Amino acid sequence: MTQQDRERIAAGLADGLSYGEIARRLGRPSSTITRELARNGGPGGYRPQQAHQATTRRARRGTPAPPRAAGSPGGAMEAELVELAVRTGLPRMCARVHIDLLLSEDGRRTAAELAHRLQISPATVSVAVKFLVELGFVRRERDPRRRRDIYVVDDDAWYHSIVTGRRQTLETVQASKAAAETYGQDSPVRQRLTKAAEFLERVSLDMIESADRWRNLLT
């Protein structure tokens, strides 16, 4: 991201534009704007010149930004995002890993970087990432030169997480239908399971169709 891009972000914030509208005007994904602001003071404390200088320094060092203190603007926003993720049902450690990846400069971290930033063990990182990969939130890439895994969250992850979650729900639907068949035609249990299965199936298929229709917004 250039200095000019950051100036345009600041101007968009001053004009009261949404993150999505700012991203559209810059020709970038909304998640890029979210990460940029979260790493550089939040919407109320964003300073384009300081943000550009800080990013340049990090790029020169080739190291991830240090963990943010909870009382700092960026740290407070990160903590709030973690709490939101937890309230949606994500285990806290998985939420911390996911949000840290989401707010990273390029959406990529190694296990060692995650362990250092979050002050957790590599084993804990492994468990959290495995869970996130299964949900479609994160994907794993292999660095052949250093023989290490790199964990990635990108814009397409939102699509994959929706599709993965709905496919898992459809597996539950099939199991519910099979269970319903074991009860008599007039059984209240059969009727209850059948109704639930039909509802979940229709909603899941609608969500997958909607995700396919709007996937282009992530490109």
Rank of each mutant, 00 (worst) to 15 (best):
A179D: 12
Q185A: 12
Y151G: 01
D100S: 15
E134K: 13
D206E: 15
R87F: 03
A69C: 05
M207S: 09
V97D: 04
R145V: 11
D149H: 14
T219P: 06
R213G: 03
D149W: 14
P91T: 02
D106N: 12
V203I: 15
R215C: 06
R117H: 08
L132K: 07
T172W: 14
T164K: 13
M1T: 02
Q3A: 10
L114C: 00
P144Q: 03
D206N: 12
R24M: 04
Q185F: 11
K130W: 07
I22A: 00
Q191K: 14
R213Q: 10
D100A: 15
M1P: 05
A85E: 11
G74W: 09
V129Y: 10
D15H: 14
A65G: 06
G41P: 04
H160C: 09
G62F: 09
R167I: 01
T32S: 14
S30Y: 09
L217H: 12
M207L: 14
A38C: 03
A54E: 08
Q50N: 04
R25P: 00
L118W: 05
R140Q: 13
R28G: 00
I120N: 01
A38Y: 10
R202K: 15
V152Q: 04
V133A: 11
Y183A: 00
A179I: 01
R213D: 05
Q168N: 14
S187M: 03
R142I: 09
L26I: 03
L205R: 15
I162W: 11
Y19H: 08
L205D: 00
P29G: 00
T194L: 13
V82Y: 05
R6E: 03
G41H: 06
D186A: 12
R142P: 01
E78L: 07
G16E: 02
T164A: 13
S121E: 10
F199R: 15
M1E: 02
E134S: 14
R8D: 03
L102C: 03
T124K: 09
D149F: 13
A69M: 07
F131Y: 12
R145G: 06
T219I: 08
M1R: 07
A180H: 06
R192C: 08
S176G: 05
V203F: 15
R47P: 00
R117L: 06
S187E: 07
A51F: 04
S210N: 09
L218M: 04
H98G: 11
